[in-house]
Design a protein around this nucleic acid. Structure first.
Length: 155
DNA sequence: GCCAACGTTGGC
DNA sequence: GCCAACGTTGGC
């Protein structure tokens, strides 16, 4: 039995780490997630899962590329590093609190599928698309196969 | 276990 | 830069 491919959306602030940065490095450990729900989604990821790369907190928020999950979840080392912004004194190596996955560049979209545009298609995307749910700030969230297809067809 | 205070996210 | 929404912390 092979498990089915799942899809996700991951946010990044382009000033910190953009789709171009991912293209340059090829593969990136997605460190710094410090939200339990987002962490749990990463722990559910499988190698080969699809990722919509989303630029947040910028002039034109939206989906700018796709990526692939390259590893299953493993401990985020930055949680143990007192000099890191992501240091968590309550986490131990025996029981790491935070996980990450490696994300591999797939491609940059020809144009940004803007948040504004995504909102206008809310009805087509169906209920419960966490990205456009009121007040949602999740930085890692699931996308259905149908949503994946629909969103990329907007390109 | 409640909840006020605080910090962060992220669109605008 | 503002601020609404949300998650977390910590006093009680």
């Amino acid at each position: 039995m092979t498990s089915r491919k799942h899809y996700w959306l991951m946010k990044s602030e382009p000033d910190t780490f953009s789709i171009d940065d991912l293209k340059k490095v090829g593969i990136e450990p997605w460190n710094g997630v410090r939200n339990y729900q987002a962490r749990n989604f990463m722990r559910a990821m499988k190698v080969g899962d699809g990722v919509l790369f989303y630029h947040s907190n910028c002039k034109e928020p939206g989906i700018v590329g796709t990526a692939t999950i390259a590893t299953t979840a493993y401990p985020d080392d930055t949680q143990f590093d007192p000099t890191s912004d992501y240091y968590d004194p309550k986490s131990t190596r025996e029981e790491p609190r935070w996980s990450l996955v490696d994300v591999k560049f797939d491609r940059a979209l020809k144009r940004t599928i803007t948040l504004d545009e995504i909102k206008r298609h809310a009805d087509d995307l169906g209920e419960g698309f966490a990205l456009i749910q009121r007040g949602s700030r999740l930085s890692v969230l699931p996308v259905t196969a149908a949503q994946w297809k629909f969103l990329l067809a907007l390109e």
